[in-house]
Design a binder for these strands. Structure first.
Lengths: 337, 337
DNA sequence: AAGAAAAATGTAATGGATTACATTTTGCAC
DNA sequence: GTGCAAAATGTAATCCATTACATTTTTCTT
């Protein structure tokens, strides 16, 4: 690999001149610039960006911690991140963490070792815990999608409570009174907020909350299927199932079909996220659309602003949701609309 | 950020001793090592890996070019890559290329500028084209999944022809004679190989090839739906549709349902990839399972071997497939098994 | 206890680009 | 043509860790 010294030697100028000819062309005479460019071409010189980054102390790399890439919602978030990062001259170091804290911490260390300038975490866990830090410094981190209140850093999130409230209300208006919820992991803030919205809507409609209608899941197809089986085996089964993501809703759909139940005539099903498959399930899924790509691009923008010192107090960005009505929700059995 | 000099000063030793105390502890006396470690702890010293990488000339970063992360097959491939790379001390720089050549070339440049040691391309395009290179040097690149014959580099692929042959044979054995194929992009080697396998199976069974049964798609749900509509509108519609991926198959399923056709009684549908949703469609999809994670981990292993000089001639790894029979394929109408 | 070998530690070069500061060249006014 | 300001270019320090080579200290042998 050619270095700047070889270019300088060939062009018969100093390395400083070569550097200037490339970085600030106007600071160099036309004649010299031409000589330098010719030498660059002849040697095939490409600046060693590792050296540049090392010297500048800026890596222009961002670590991204994703619980699972194999989740279409996150896949869209990553797409948004990539776009935004590329536009701003940053690269993404991706880590598929499988929600493994050790793995997350291992990647967070890249920030301390100057391999990355900042980190985006899509899960409610502070990957810097344990890595003793200058406690006064703000963490070079953005928390998006699933947000941990405790971390003091910029966040990007949906008003999950309001979204769950909206969906529950939609089901209530269709006459449903026994509305089940297939939740995410119990300790997730996502679950907490959505359950809160669900409860609030029930309360306002004067419907008693029934703990047995809350079934745990883990966002996978299989967990949705299993949870649906459990719910329909209740002495008084629900007439509607609100799932915390579309995968679980699609799992539930299959279970209902196996039980010989029709959706939405016998049971309504709703999802969350509006992944591409939601429109192609049978029946197509009523769901909450999230601006996934925007989550990604916003998180990246915030992080870069933070890193480059353009951010004051840690902002909290709330993105809008949209209730998409499709065919999987309908009037409760026996309910006249 | 503390540097090795501050640690050295605090421990009252030279920087060389600090470096050795950390890298080769046995080369330093117990007493000194203890002093150094105490100083490291007190200062919170973390080596600047950017400096290490710069000096060593190895970035330990790998660029990964993915057409779309929002494709569950690729998501699984990435998962495999991440695992393998992390195990070997490498990091992944992810680029969601949207099959945009300029974007691919822009990321390929990271290899030339020493920001990455190598690159994995999941598409049939050489991202180094145009970036004039030392022509004698082997490209530090691995081509996986969709492989371009022209590139002389290690490859990881499925025997797509054999897989398509197997699926076509499966359909033929069920008595189907008019078997349609929803293809990928026309110029893709994937498409070429799978069509070849399809044709070969037909030929061996003595079934005439009918060009009109080949419908183009782009691997999306929508394209599968559209293609299915076109196929069923033929004067002599197919009794089976073999789709080049599961997304298109699921799109086709929806279209058939809208047309009032039953699967598999009226039309059989088969997919390719065995994504998680394949088992949850209605009916569950017969498909070709690919070891997606293994594609990723193998590609990473090969690339690292290549980079570290442990590879002789560019190997060509062929991974096995598996035909998964589910409920979406059945006997052709009127056929007695 | 002297001397040699081994162990421990230190000094300084190295990697490649940028840039503060120093020096030379050019351009222009009078 | 002299003198001065501006432009162009050069010299060398810098970023941080590693490591070849040099030097000092310790250990062991006889």
């Amino acid at each position: 690999m050619a270095t700047i010294h070889q270019v300088a030697a060939l062009a018969e100028v100093s390395v400083a001149t070569v550097s200037r000819a490339l970085q600030q062309p106007e600071r160099v005479s036309d004649k010299t610039r031409a000589r330098v460019l010719a030498a660059v071409k002849q040697t095939g010189y490409k600046p060693n960006l590792m050296a540049v980054k090392f010297r500048s102390g800026k890596s222009r790399n961002l670590v991204v911690l994703v619980p699972t890439v194999a989740n279409l919602f996150f896949a869209r978030v990553i797409t948004g991140m990539q776009q935004s990062a590329h536009d701003k001259g940053y690269s993404l170091l991706l880590c598929n963490t499988m929600a493994n804290e050790a793995m997350e911490q291992s990647y967070a260390r890249m920030v301390h070792t100057s391999q990355a300038d900042g980190l985006i975490q899509l899960r409610a866990f502070n990957p810097f815990t344990g890595l003793e830090m200058a406690a006064d410094q703000p963490l070079p981190m953005v928390n998006a999608c699933e947000v941990l209140d405790r971390i003091r850093c910029p966040t990007v999130l949906l008003d999950n409570k309001a979204a769950a409230y909206a969906m529950t209300e939609h089901l209530l208006q269709l006459g449903h009174r026994r509305i089940a919820m297939i939740k995410g992991p119990p300790r997730s803030p996502l679950t907490r907020d959505r359950v809160a919205g669900y409860k609030e809507a029930l309360a306002e409609a004067g419907v008693d909350f029934d703990e047995s209608l809350l079934s745990p899941g883990n966002f996978s197809l299989a967990s949705g299927q299993k949870a649906a089986a459990g719910l329909m085996a209740l002495p008084e089964p629900p007439t509607a199932i609100f799932c915390e993501n579309d995968e679980m809703a699609i799992g539930a759909l299959q279970q209902l079909k196996q039980l010989g139940l029709r959706v939405p005539q016998d049971v309504s099903v709703a999802g969350f996220d509006d992944i591409a498959f939601a429109a192609y399930s049978d029946p197509p899924l009523t769901t909450i659309a999230q601006p996934a790509e925007e989550f990604g691009s916003t998180a990246v923008s915030l992080l870069i602003d933070l890193i480059e010192g353009r951010l004051g107090k840690a902002p909290k960005v709330i993105l809008p949701f949209d209730l998409i009505e499709r065919a999987s929700t309908g009037p409760a059995p026996g309910h006249l609309t």
